[in-house]
């Protein structure tokens, strides 16, 4: 792989890699490091490039593996996502409406956070990044049917908890 190819095809996806790493690690600096490491790893494995069908998925897979290794090797303490609840923008609404909205957002965040890692990742890749089933399967090294089944189960689990919020305010 020439440097031009790397600059044109790999470097532009680094934002996506960062986002993915950030969701897994919950820490901006570590996500930046993992993104850089992933780029270097892609470069070091450039001989595999001609065989790849989806390079972006491959880069995402490398990023995920690096992030998961980091979590495993250092007994990584995942930042409590609830800490970030206060960052929700607070314009246009009254303080009361805003507090109510924040409260709901905190609960939704918790619902997503409490999902098993595979469910959470699949939902994020599909609903936030807009990846196809095949791309998600490539990223997570799963069968496409497994992706569909897991996405269905994940959404079902989320829906049940959202209903609890709606009905009981839990």
């Amino acid at each position: 792989m020439s440097l031009d190819l790397f600059l044109n095809q790999v470097v532009p996806v680094r934002q996506k890699l960062f986002r993915f790493a950030y969701r897994l690690l919950g820490n901006e600096e570590d996500a930046q490091d993992i993104t850089q490491d992933a780029l270097m790893k892609v470069w070091s494995q450039q001989e595999k490039m001609p065989e790849l069908q989806n390079m972006e998925a491959w880069c995402m897979r490398i990023t995920r593996n690096l992030a998961l290794d980091k979590i495993k090797s250092r007994k990584y303490r995942l930042a409590d996502e609830l800490d970030r609840a206060g960052e929700v923008p607070s314009a246009q609404h009254s303080p009361h409406t805003m507090a109510e909205k924040n409260d709901v957002m905190v609960k939704v965040r918790r619902i997503i956070h409490e999902l098993p890692e595979k469910y959470r990742t699949i939902i994020q890749l599909r609903d936030m990044d807009g990846y196809s089933y095949q791309e998600i399967a490539d990223i997570l090294e799963l069968d496409m049917n497994d992706v569909k089944v897991n996405l269905h189960r994940a959404r079902k689990a989320v829906r049940e908890k959202l209903q609890n919020i709606q009905v009981y305010g839990l």
Partner: peptide, 24 residues
Amino acid sequence: PLFGFFREEIEQEQALEERLPEPR
């Protein structure tokens, strides 16, 4: 709320992406 959450997460991540340093 779920779709609201997705939207807010994306906005927050985009803000963080702007701080992403140039790759070495």
